[in-house]
Write a protein that binds this DNA or RNA. Sequence first.
DNA 1: CGGCTGGCTGCCT
DNA 2: AAGGCAGCCAGCC
Length: 104
Amino acid sequence: MTNQAMDNFKSQVFLILNSIPFGECIAYGELAAQAGFPNHARQVGAIMKKLPKDTSLPWHRVVNAQRRISFAENTDGYLRQKEKLEQEGWLIVGTKLQLKNKDS
DNA sequence: CGGCTGGCTGCCT
DNA sequence: AAGGCAGCCAGCC
């Protein structure tokens, strides 16, 4: 992957991220695929990792393919993501995301 | 330049 | 349902 492609990739990731509506979420792999680069799920994670804590991007809407938060519980990242998701109407059980109403 | 490490995934016990 | 494992690929050392 060229540096240029990578810039493009990042740009796409940010765009797509911003396009995710309130209350929805997307998987790392899917985000990567939509950005035009399948099998780059981890790279998406790497990008998220670099984001400043005060970023305005809805990075919390990105979860793993199992619809779980990809952080161990009691970690800082986990807590921050959980909090933001709860603000968007999600119910978090452990690392698992569920809809408040019914679900599954 | 080789080796290890991840905000991952899917397949196979 | 729950681990283990092997691909995956850019960063870092």
